[in-house]
């Protein structure tokens, strides 16, 4: 297990930024650590919009927000002393996107948690970091919780849940 190879899963939330800051504080300026910022794209569903144009605009906005967040997260890591060359960004676009892209891999949209764990396995990461907004049992039941699923299903890696 390469525990110094860290995957930080981020969306564009405050929780994700807390996870980024925490990781930066822990790792600091040690160059032997490698950090990947991973975003699994989730776009608004087509069913929520009256027409293609409105849907496409919403998807463009969401993608822009996620991309900007990744840049901010990388910057935030560097501010805590993490060397820039040890940070990589990975953005997996949604397979159901109306936007064109040149990606060779896309997210099928089944479960963000499972997709994150697949990336952990594929990339041989020893640590996965995720932010969490404290959710009640009822919320978890109705809406699901990425962090709870990761805790439940993660194997062969450490999980840092930052609340």
């Amino acid at each position: 297990m390469k525990c110094k190879k860290i995957l930080v899963a981020v969306d564009a939330s405050d929780n994700a930024m807390r996870a980024v800051h925490y990781t930066g504080e822990i790792v600091g300026d040690r160059p032997e650590f490698l950090i990947e910022l991973l975003t699994i794209e989730r776009l608004p569903a087509r069913d929520l919009f009256p027409d293609e144009a409105a849907w496409k605009t919403a998807c463009e906005n969401t993608r822009a927000e996620l991309r900007i967040f990744q840049d901010k997260a990388a910057f935030a890591l560097q501010e805590t002393g993490v060397p820039g060359q040890t940070i990589t960004k990975r953005y997996i676009t949604s397979c159901h996107s109306p936007l064109t892209g040149d990606a060779t891999q896309c997210s099928p949209g089944t479960s963000i948690a499972q997709e994150i764990l697949q990336e952990v396995k594929n990339g041989d990461f020893g640590t996965v970091v995720i932010g969490r907004r404290g959710v009640s049992k009822a919320e978890e039941f109705l809406f699901g919780s990425v962090s709870t699923k990761i805790i439940h299903y993660a194997r062969g890696c450490a999980v840092w849940v930052v609340e």
């Binding site: 929520l48 948690a113 039941f141 699901g144």
Partner: peptide, 15 residues
């Protein structure tokens, strides 16, 4: 009816 849930899209139906 449509909703925008990502992680547990079938949770409301199950409920």
């Amino acid at each position: 009816y449509a909703f925008g849930f990502h992680e547990n899209p079938f949770g409301l139906d199950m409920f």
